[in-house]
Structures are given as C-alpha cells and as structure tokens.
Design a protein around this nucleic acid. Sequence first.
DNA 1: TTGGGCACTTACCAAAAGGTGCATACTTGT
DNA 2: ACAAGTATGCACCTTTTGGTAAGTGCCCAA
Lengths: 145, 145
Amino acid sequence: MSDPSDLISNQPPPPVPACTPTLPGFTCGLDATLRVIAGKWKPLIHYFLAQGGPTRYGELRRAIRDVSDKMLIQQLKELEADGLVKRTDYKEIPPRVDYSLTPLGVSLAQALVPLCTWGTENMAEVTRVFAQREAWNSMRKQQVD
Amino acid sequence: MSDPSDLISNQPPPPVPACTPTLPGFTCGLDATLRVIAGKWKPLIHYFLAQGGPTRYGELRRAIRDVSDKMLIQQLKELEADGLVKRTDYKEIPPRVDYSLTPLGVSLAQALVPLCTWGTENMAEVTRVFAQREAWNSMRKQQVD
DNA sequence: TTGGGCACTTACCAAAAGGTGCATACTTGT
DNA sequence: ACAAGTATGCACCTTTTGGTAAGTGCCCAA
C-alpha cells in the first residue's frame, strides 16, 4: 500500500487512500523501520558499529557515556534479535565478545544517512524547538508543586 | 546531546572518529531527527500530508484508523511546535482547520524516503522478527499468571 | 586477600508515552 | 427538540520504557 516514494510526490491530490494497511502489522515501511531503530541508545550503537568504532562490549560501554549495563545489553540483544547486529562470543576466559553489523544492519545504516544529514543541517532549528518545549514542560511542573 | 561526539569519552585506546559523515557512518543529527519523528502517529501524519492526502482535521482523523482525538491533536501540536507542520484556522463556524507541511517538513519527508524504502524492502524480515518477539513476550506473561 | 576487570543478569522503581471517555460551543439537518 | 458534525480540552488510568543498584562467576595482579 504505502509506497514511500509517494512521500515526496507532490502530484495532484489523489483521492484519500484510506489507510488500508496493516496486513502484517505495520502501516508502512517507515513504521516498520522506526520500530527497529527506536530505542534510546540504538542510534548511537549503530553509529559506532557502522563506522568501525568500538566493537567489544566494554568498549561500547565506555564509549557511550551514561549508558548503563542493563540498557546497553538490552538494546544490543534487541538489535541482534532484529538481525541488524551479530554477536560473536569467543568463549574465552576472561570473556570476550564483540558486536558487528550484519548486511541488513549495514543497509539500514545507509538508509539512515539522509536522516543524519537532515538532522545536522537543521540542528539549530531542532535544538531551539526542543529547548523551548522543555522549558515549557518544566514550567508546568513547577506550577503543580 | 544531539551531537554524538558529546557522548563519546575522548579517552581510551580506540581513537574516537570525528563526527563526520563518512560513508557507512551516521552523522550527528540522527538523534535529533529521531526525536522529532518519534511518536506513534507522526509517521502516518507525515505520510498523509506529504502526499497531499487529507489536510483537514476530521479527514485525518478518519483516514488514520484507530487514532484517538487526543493522540491526533497531541501529535499535530508537537509537529506544529517543531516547525514541520503548519496549522491554518479559517475561524469559521462550524470550525474549519487544515494542516500542511512546512518547507522544513517537506525536507524531512524527503530524508525519510530511503527509510521507507528500507522498511518496505525488508518488511518480511522485520515482521517475522517482531512476531517472534511478541510470541516470546506473551509466553513470559502467561508464565507469570 | 583484596580488588579489579570482564560480560552480563536480576529485582525493583520512576518517568514517559499512550489510551478511554466525557465535555465544550456552535450549527445544520430531520 | 434532538442528533450529528466541527475541532478541541481535560481527568484519569494503563502500558511501555528507561534507570539504579546490586550480584554472578571467572581470572589476574598487588
């Protein structure tokens, strides 16, 4: 149904294509993709793995500031379950494990590039807006007190 | 925060690569971008507005199945606050309001195209994996009972 | 013997996101 | 008179997500 290339076709307004989706559970390709990379640390993990950064667990742990063991493991496991990341256990003592992107992970990384670019180009705009939103949120919180 | 290099500890052995958009690597803006489109209904709203679908509130409401008034309004307001969507109130009676993408919104839509494509191309893979994950989750839940 | 690093695991808790349902004010159609 | 449609707002609740702190078993170095 939702061919994403329609996203930019500024063609004449077609009759409302009633959202007939969800044969498998996703409304469109975009939806599926977002569910796969949604997660507080997944973009960063992807970022490191894609550019050949740290690959061992502990390295990732130290490279990504403020991430906890629980979260890092959790997100890595999900990425692995989703087929984006491959875990290699060398079964040594002390333990040695490293992580890398699968071909699927690499292809996703490539699809993410324009999004990264957009974010960088509009960084000022986006940060400004988020600062505003958070300021407003904290105002409301203080009124509750 | 939206610049990954902020999250890198410039410390240890693996020299931290600069935040430059090398080929398979992400750029700094990925995080920022994801925060802007993260939201259960935002991709769909974007989808409809980008392709010249329904623009009036009620039309969107009917086009996106299962969305509630509260959620639709909420997400529209956030998109508006983020500068991606423009709200036009015709101040008529009965009320008439429509929504459209701003230039910024259009540019984001374009950046989203590869992501949509990836999702569609790998839909089978992704759905399979998610079905598995949910099956496993519900098994754990039943064990708790 | 104590302490650290390795790669996790678990139990518990807080915050955020999402959902339900009712209410508004005004008009048109029956 | 009454229902239905217009675009929202609000109170309350549940689900999902993220975070903290502690513990596991193994080994090495001081």
